[in-house]
Amino acid sequence: MTSVLTVAMLVYRKDIAIERRSKETLFTVLSFGLLATLVFALSFFIENDVSGAYAPGVIWTVVLFASTLGLQRLFESERENDCFGGLLLAPIDLKGVYVGKLLVQLTFSGLMEACTIPLVFLFFDLFPFMDAGRLWTLLLLLALGTLGFAIIGTLFAAMLLSTRLREVLLPIVVYPLVTPVLIAGVQGTRLLFAGTESVSHWITLIGAFDLIYLGIALAIFPKMLRA
């Protein structure tokens, strides 16, 4: 048995290599993220001085929706020609496959956020609401939240791979489960824009969510797929 991290790195490198040639997923996620930002800005922008109240919702909705689109494509290369079956048959620890795919999803989400969130700042004119210290807190909040979405999303994207209607079922299954992250993220970001320095309780909540679900995912991922 190869170790979990070796498997994870192999899966990660394989997916990134495929992506560097096709650039399909990155194009999908990025273009959707940017367009969603544009649509939300056109819908919700009211006045410069109140945009701090609206922008948190926009940031987190864009992140959630665009990562869902990434999740839909996350196991696409495995679905074709039933490569996932091969992966299940291989003498490896399946936790590694999960961790590798989680890293792939985090890479795409991170790149997408790096492009869309500056754009939200620009469109909603958020720079007066922020300073350097709170920006770091916001980045931590976003990183933990993205991790939370990815943990739940990767787990069920793999599970629903062979299911009919998986494009519809994935958000139906994932969104109710990630509501704590969404609430914590939006409220924490709103507090930051309102000038609060410390949002540690919301960060703790998302952190606890990430830890609990990473544990659950690693425990049940191999059990559910290989029985």
Binding site: I152, F156, V173, P176, L177, P180, L205, F209, I216, I220
Partner: peptide, 15 residues
């Protein structure tokens, strides 16, 4: 999978 979803739902209730 459905069983996994129901199990995952339990800590979510608390969170």
């Amino acid at each position: 999978i459905a069983a996994g979803l129901a199990v995952a739902g339990i800590p979510a209730i608390y969170l």
